[in-house]
Design a binder for these strands. Sequence first.
DNA 1: GTAACGACGTTACGTGATTCACAACAGTAT
DNA 2: ATACTGTTGTGAATCACGTAACGTCGTTAC
Lengths: 217, 217
Amino acid sequence: MNTSRNNKLNPNVVGRLSLYRRILQSLAMEGQAKVFSHALAKRAGVTASQVRRDLMTIGYTGSPSSGYDVVALGEATNLELDAPTRQPVMLLGVGNLGRAVLEYFHQAHARLEMVAAVDVDPEKVGRVISGVATYSAADLPDLIKEKGIDVAILTLPASRAQEATDLIVGAGVHSLLNFTNVRLRVPDGVFVENMDIGIALAKVAYYGRREEGRRGE
Amino acid sequence: MNTSRNNKLNPNVVGRLSLYRRILQSLAMEGQAKVFSHALAKRAGVTASQVRRDLMTIGYTGSPSSGYDVVALGEATNLELDAPTRQPVMLLGVGNLGRAVLEYFHQAHARLEMVAAVDVDPEKVGRVISGVATYSAADLPDLIKEKGIDVAILTLPASRAQEATDLIVGAGVHSLLNFTNVRLRVPDGVFVENMDIGIALAKVAYYGRREEGRRGE
DNA sequence: GTAACGACGTTACGTGATTCACAACAGTAT
DNA sequence: ATACTGTTGTGAATCACGTAACGTCGTTAC
Ligand SMILES: NC(=O)c1ccc[n+]([C@@H]2O[C@H](COP(=O)([O-])OP(=O)(O)OC[C@H]3O[C@@H](n4cnc5c(N)ncnc54)[C@H](O)[C@@H]3O)[C@@H](O)[C@H]2O)c1
Ligand SMILES: NC(=O)c1ccc[n+]([C@@H]2O[C@H](COP(=O)([O-])OP(=O)(O)OC[C@H]3O[C@@H](n4cnc5c(N)ncnc54)[C@H](O)[C@@H]3O)[C@@H](O)[C@H]2O)c1
């Protein structure tokens, strides 16, 4: 709900930088060596001003004649966004969504490393799912301390989300990606990013409505 | 990228109203008849002012003594958010994520009805997955017109997202929930909600970093 | 050689969203 | 009855964020 203790960038900027980085990787693949703020902006769906301003906040500087160096800027964003070391992550709730996310982690771009999945279902505990070992929820605090986990992904039933959060935050986790539809109560200094699919659906439903007095097209 | 033609509420407000509605449903389950803005705000993770302001925009009014009527306010938000009729939705790309979303639609809260899934994989086409018939991508324009689909969910590979978008937008879809990591180019009047899991991961990774000079706790 | 151009970095500005603050008011207690 | 409490509805103030604008400077054209 509130941004964390000592990171200077705000979440919107972090999000856009991550987006720029992804685009820069594509450009590098395409063999582009340089890029102008306008081109980057177009691909990212923002204004050129926004791009320049964001790059200013990380102190990267380009050239008025040739723009930004694709590789160098990519590395600059990596430096800003990525931890100097691997970051262990855990996932709670190996259901439909949890499995999809685990699968997605195979092509992990960031420096995040999925080190543990947790479930209460005895069918799942002990098995290796999508390359990740699954543990019992009872082992949570030990697991977190042992592996030094700071980040967790919540894909468990909404009814269990708050208690699980209390448990893992107590054990040291302080950054959460929350896929459940509850708003978690967390102490100051703990970062929560909500991916609320229900709300996203409400929005597309709302704007998908075709009113009777439809003008245009 | 831009809000649609004739809906008066803006996306943030729609999102919060949807959140309030969900909370009101919980409260109703718990047998609460009335609720104050503070209580609603606490559960939603916003300020009480924000709640009152949002309710003002939909014209619902409570009582200074007893607050808001849980049921009546719930119905007021339904009236504002829901289409008067069922809204047919389609999903493109029945992969890991697509299946999870289809499964999720079984407990569909909103007035959205999943009427078709689309894939290019011949293994999937023609089968019924999570209660939804799967069609070939070749049938897309017919499908959209025939079923009157205005809303689509994109869970197909990023490399195919733009072309698929062009196709379905051309056929009349004008509200998209985009799970891929590309920023779609769409004409004015088409609403796109991005659920970018990669960016969400970048954020939790960033704020999960524990800096060397860690103060507090 | 010099003028014109175009993109960058940065500051200033505008806009929209959120929060503040308070008058009005229903209920309650005395 | 009257004073008090606590909450609503809402105009005003604030805040955050994105956008525009502009000075600077390398490059290019002539
Ligand atoms: N599937 C989707 O597309 C989707 C969409 C929107 C929201 N969500 C939300 O994501 C969450 C998970 O959805 P799902 O479809 O994967 O549900 P699911 O029921 O398939 O999976 C939930 C998993 O969590 C496990 N679990 C239960 N209690 C647990 C605990 N205390 N600790 C650890 N694991 C526990 C269960 O055993 C199960 O494996 C839900 O909150 C749901 O509302 C899912
Ligand atoms: N799985 C996740 O947790 C996750 C996380 C972040 C982003 N994503 C994104 O979501 C998208 C889907 O992810 P996934 O893991 O489900 O991938 P997936 O490969 O499991 O599924 C993709 C599906 O789309 C189908 N498809 C391919 N081309 C198509 C077309 N033109 N029209 C219709 N369907 C087509 C494929 O046959 C396949 O079934 C990807 O863009 C991915 O980057 C997924």
